[in-house]
Amino acid sequence: MGITDETYLPTDEELTVPEVNVSGPVLKAAAHHLGNACLKENNEFMLCRHELDDPRKCLEEGKAVTNCALNFFRQVKNNCATEFTQYVNCVDRASSDQSFGPCRKTQGVFDKCMFDKLNMCRPAFDQYARVQVHHTDRPKPPVEGPAVYPDAAPYLPEEHFKKMKTIAAKYFAVFIIALVLVNLMQYAEATYRKPPFNGSIFGKRGTSVDYDSGAGKTLSSMCEIASEACQAWFPSQDK
């Protein structure tokens, strides 16, 4: 979207929150318990982003997610710091891709500590793939209907269409006349280039050409014009 002077942008104070300053192996080792402990806050934030489609309106939900993660790591540090540190070191160093496979023993020790002291069970491996229903206290935003645009330009008056039909008819008539004239000229040219042949060299005679017909008259006229032009251009000299 375009940003103008009237667009509201959050201030630095609104955006400044304590960060979860931990490394990747720490987040990966705590991911299962962290996701289960902050499930409600995460779902609320994602629902807000999906429904409102405006991150400015979901700042409080985002702060709640960050605050929940900070509280979770504080509880782990106060109750299971040793077990969690061993598990993190194993995940970070036991394999090149930080796999959980080589660390099942340290994982079991950490999970037992979380259950005994914080009453947190490690979720099932397919828990986050299951269909979940999230209940929220935030009112549902109104559903926006389809955009309604003003009508197009008003229709042209009926007299305009009548005038256009008249002009189109005139152009069509001119086109037809020109087409007829071109066909007549081509026919006359073809008749002039192909004089009648009676087939006498083959021992038979054909029908004579009717010079009274349209093609014959055209050819006769052209011959007369050519003869007159030759007499005018090349006058005969008396000996």
Results as ranks from 00 to 15, higher is better:
Gly2Thr: 09
Gly2Ala: 13
Gly2Phe: 12
Ile3Phe: 07
Glu6Thr: 13
Glu6Cys: 04
Thr11Arg: 01
Glu13Gln: 15
Leu15Trp: 06
Pro18Asp: 04
Pro18Tyr: 01
Val20Phe: 00
Asn21Leu: 08
Val22Cys: 04
Leu27Gly: 07
His32Leu: 10
His33Val: 00
Leu34Thr: 00
Leu34Asp: 00
Gly35Pro: 03
Gly35Tyr: 05
Gly35Phe: 08
Leu39Thr: 09
Leu39Met: 07
Asn42Met: 10
Glu44Trp: 01
Glu51Cys: 04
Leu52Val: 05
Asp53Ala: 07
Asp54Arg: 00
Pro55Leu: 02
Lys57Glu: 03
Leu59His: 04
Leu59Glu: 00
Glu60Gln: 13
Gly62Lys: 02
Gly62Ser: 10
Lys63Val: 02
Val65Asn: 05
Cys68Arg: 00
Phe72Val: 01
Val76Arg: 00
Lys77Val: 01
Ala81Val: 07
Thr82Asp: 15
Tyr87Ala: 03
Val91Ile: 06
Arg93Gly: 08
Arg93Asn: 08
Arg93Val: 04
Ser95Ile: 06
Gly101Asp: 13
Pro102Met: 07
Cys103Gly: 03
Arg104His: 03
Gln107Pro: 04
Phe110Tyr: 05
Cys113Ala: 01
Asp116Lys: 02
Met120Ser: 00
Met120Lys: 00
Pro123Leu: 02
Phe125His: 12
Tyr128Trp: 12
Ala129Tyr: 10
Ala129Pro: 05
Arg130Leu: 13
Val131Asp: 15
Gln132Met: 09
Gln132Trp: 08
Gln132Gly: 03
Val133Trp: 01
Val133Met: 06
Val133Lys: 03
Pro142Gly: 01
Gly145Asn: 10
Tyr149Ser: 11
Tyr149Arg: 12
Ala152Lys: 11
Ala152Leu: 13
Ala153Arg: 12
Ala153Asn: 04
Tyr155Thr: 10
Leu156Ser: 12
Leu156Pro: 11
Pro157Trp: 07
Glu158Arg: 08
Glu159Trp: 08
Glu159Ala: 09
His160Asp: 08
Lys163Gly: 09
Lys165Asn: 04
Ile167Thr: 10
Ala169Arg: 09
Phe175Asn: 06
Ile176His: 05
Ile177Val: 15
Ile177Ala: 11
Ile177His: 04
Leu179Val: 06
Leu181Gly: 06
Leu181Met: 05
Val182Gln: 08
Met185Arg: 11
Met185Lys: 08
Tyr187Phe: 12
Tyr187Ile: 11
Glu189His: 15
Glu189Ile: 15
Ala190Ile: 12
Thr191Ile: 15
Tyr192Ala: 08
Arg193Pro: 05
Lys194Asp: 13
Lys194Ser: 14
Asn198Ser: 12
Asn198Ala: 10
Phe202Asn: 08
Phe202Val: 11
Gly203Asp: 05
Gly203Tyr: 01
Lys204Glu: 06
Lys204His: 13
Arg205Ser: 11
Val209Met: 15
Tyr211Lys: 04
Leu219Gln: 14
Leu219Pro: 09
Leu219Arg: 15
Ser220Lys: 14
Ile225Glu: 14
Ile225Lys: 14
Ala229Asp: 09
Ala229Thr: 09
Ala229Tyr: 11
Cys230Phe: 15
Cys230Trp: 14
Gln231Phe: 14
Ala232Gln: 13
Trp233Glu: 12
Phe234Asp: 12
